[in-house]
Nucleic acid binder design. Sequence first.
DNA 1: GTGTTAAGTGAACATATGTACACTATAATG
DNA 2: CATTATAGTGTACATATGTTCACTTAACAC
Lengths: 213, 213
Amino acid sequence: MIHSGKKHRRKDNKPIDTRQALFDAVLELMSRDKSFDAISLREVTREVGINPSAFYRHFPDMNSLGLELVNLSFKTLRQHLKDVRANPVQDANVVRESVETFVSYVLAHPRQFQFIIRAQVGGAASIRAEIESEHRLLVSELSTDLARRFDAASWSTEELQMLADLMIGAMTRIVEQLLIENRHSASQAALTELAEKQLQLILLGAMHWHDQP
Amino acid sequence: MIHSGKKHRRKDNKPIDTRQALFDAVLELMSRDKSFDAISLREVTREVGINPSAFYRHFPDMNSLGLELVNLSFKTLRQHLKDVRANPVQDANVVRESVETFVSYVLAHPRQFQFIIRAQVGGAASIRAEIESEHRLLVSELSTDLARRFDAASWSTEELQMLADLMIGAMTRIVEQLLIENRHSASQAALTELAEKQLQLILLGAMHWHDQP
DNA sequence: GTGTTAAGTGAACATATGTACACTATAATG
DNA sequence: CATTATAGTGTACATATGTTCACTTAACAC
């Protein structure tokens, strides 16, 4: 008999909690100086407090866990960016505002970003590919945003993507330093200011990009 | 008795070769979809073809091997950059020339760069710290270069470092895509052009950085 | 030559890993 | 209430790991 309806769920949603706990365990382990593919299945179940065999009730292997975690992380990130876009900054200093809210968001979800950043270059090809495609999505979204702010006629899609890629790249590196290097608030302020200046410089370049044909 | 002179070496320099072979083995293994801290000591010795115990004749543990590999990789990279600086580009199109020679260099030493990029976020804190300090060195060197090309009076050291960091960051991301994503020459050309445009845009921004006080 | 020292071997160990299988408990469904 | 599918347990096994120790080998210094 094939179940076409909903899956069975406990009253207290225990299975879902365990699933989430497995995600959390991976994030927790990675926040303790480990790359994703150096984390063993048994370590994860140990962290959660379940039997190693129980892992297979939720994922066929660690790689699948990783892939789902990528999607999950990007989904929340994309939702946040959507919210930010929904009420755009009125202030004259758009860059300052944007960078600051983004930095706060990163610092509020450090483990998710740490996971993404490490898995992006660290692990298996399938996971890297997934992150790469999510990254491209972000670039596209930003470039359509930028299209609205710049002279749409003179900027080609490729140029806009080049610009968006540069901006996201700069922010990615800021995030890396924010999370991996050191976490005292002194350097956080410095990094925020660094990000602001770098983005401002990029925008300045963009404003003069089509000065001489 | 303490040896103050040279160490004993075989006629055919075998010990040195083995040491190098251990480095090579790590690079080779990392080029096959693995982060540094997911590589076992036994894997490395297996790749070289020696007994696991023999590893300890050369390094106390994998971490030390990693640290030395970082230094080695950056030493050759820094030497290359020094050579490039020695005969500066005469051409009007400095950016194009610089990017193209750098991309060729990266493609000629893919495994070293792959190692650096992966170890930078992947592994143990000590290795990350070592890469971070080497990175800062590169930024400093570039910023003194830039000081010569820009109006030295109006640019502060911090601003120069901000600019250098942005440029190196952009190139780092290009290297990542060059090595990790895909390696067909079609995308290589596209990435080279992307790098050129991004650097040009950054320089454009830098030229107008002090327009309005 | 003889002795010394560095490099490499082979076997052994305690421990960790992924996965399989039979099992128990429990929540939802009929 | 009886059935059933899901989540989790316990055990087991083959395999992999880091590290140790006693050993062989071979190059160089004398």
